[in-house]
């Protein structure tokens, strides 16, 4: 198992881990993000966007399902929550292959559209602001990126 763990103690620390990951991701990479309400998925996504050079405010894509931003490369933030009973393709490949990075929240609802090789991240809530970030890379390149993150 290539699972890796990072413990953070403040939202800022979580954001910094995400920013560092943003520096390491390559065009067409897909990251899934799971965790309870208030676990820090939004904080993490903001950090990731920062790492990719996004200057605009990153906010919730729950209603619009996707929000796309322009950083050094495109950055797509997908929230599949509203697609639970949909089973429809909304053009996922257009996002996954346009040379940008995509973060997917509620990935279980669009499992069969996701690329096999990707980085699955879970954020677990601990006491107060303590968080456990669990990285589960699938594929050689994502295992490499996960290792890099710990340097």
């Amino acid at each position: 198992m290539d699972e890796q763990l990072i413990n953070t103690h403040t939202p800022l620390e979580t954001q910094q881990v995400a920013r560092k990951l943003g520096y390491l991701l390559r065009p067409n990479d897909v990251v899934t993000l799971t965790g309870d309400l208030g676990a820090g998925k939004t904080t993490f996504t903001k950090g990731l966007g920062e790492g990719l050079g996004v200057k605009r405010t990153i906010n919730s894509p729950t209603f619009t399902i996707v929000k796309s931003y322009q950083g050094e490369i495109p950055f797509h933030h997908i929230d599949a929550y509203r697609l639970e009973e949909s089973h429809e393709d909304i053009g996922f490949d257009e996002y996954f292959t346009d040379g940008g990075v995509t973060v997917v929240e509620w990935p279980q609802y669009i499992e069969h559209f996701l690329p096999e090789e990707r980085l699955n991240i879970e954020i677990k809530k601990g006491q107060d602001d303590h968080r456990q970030i669990i990285l589960r890379p699938v594929g050689r390149m994502f295992k490499h990126i996960t290792k890099e993150l710990f340097r």
Binding site: I65, R82, L83, E84, E85, S86, E88, D89, I90, G91
Partner: peptide, 16 residues
């Protein structure tokens, strides 16, 4: 037509 508890399943697919 796609109401469920407290939300709506959107038919946002291009096909529609």
């Amino acid at each position: 037509s796609h109401k469920r508890f407290g939300g709506v399943v959107p038919e946002v697919a291009s096909r529609h």
